[in-house]
Design a protein around this nucleic acid. Structure first.
Lengths: 104, 104
DNA sequence: CAGATCCTTCGATGACCGTCGAAGTATCAC
DNA sequence: GTGATACTTCGACGGTCATCGAAGGATCTG
């Protein structure tokens, strides 16, 4: 059975907190990958082009989740991450698109 | 005579650096005020609703300028700040609008 | 149960960042 | 030149953050 980890309600998502979550090269790469490849995505370290250990990656997923950027779902030993696309679009229209756009 | 302080070329503006510049409550308030009130704007501490001393504000203007978010122009004893709206829109379409939109 | 898998939490470390007082620089007014 | 104005730079301090090894769940396999 899939269980969802705690995350802020949509109305409680804070812009500064979201920007802080996005303002890290590793985390930005993570959400850009999800945006490009589609959700849900696994959260294991070998699925992303980032040079950090598992413990560090786990920390980054937590920051993204607690900021309201992603949802993490637990299914057995596996975890799956999704972007909170709708919630973010409602709160800050255009932000996610601007940050995940192709070029940069 | 108005003299412009050094700032990165448009093509050298980095997304992570911009996000780091925006991910601070004081700096976000600054650029939101400029976006709302229009440029150019003075950079003295009594022109903004922020609770920091002049030395700290000066630091924040520098961070914003070096990230490529603002342009600072020196005219006599006064400095004027403008948003690099066009450059940012070219590099990261929609980002500035998303971050300076009314509600949040 | 035993062992392997997947991921988290803990604790520590080093680096970076926001803050401000004090001192400095440049400019203007008289 | 003298003094005031506007802002910056310097140096220090405290707090936060990214990082990782080690240890600890929780779950699946056999």
């Amino acid at each position: 059975m899939a269980r969802q980890l705690p995350q802020p309600h949509r109305d409680d998502i804070d812009l500064v907190t979201v920007l802080q979550a996005l303002a890290d090269p590793v985390r930005l790469e993570l959400i850009r990958t999800i945006a490009r490849e589609g959700d849900p995505r696994p959260c294991s370290v070998d699925c992303y082009d980032v040079d950090v250990k598992a413990a560090t990656l786990s920390h980054h997923w937590r920051v993204l989740r607690e900021a309201g950027v992603t949802t993490t779902t637990v299914d057995g030993r596996r975890r799956w991450v999704t972007l909170r696309t709708d919630d973010l679009h409602t709160r800050f229209p255009g932000l996610l698109d601007a940050v995940t756009a192709d070029p940069a």
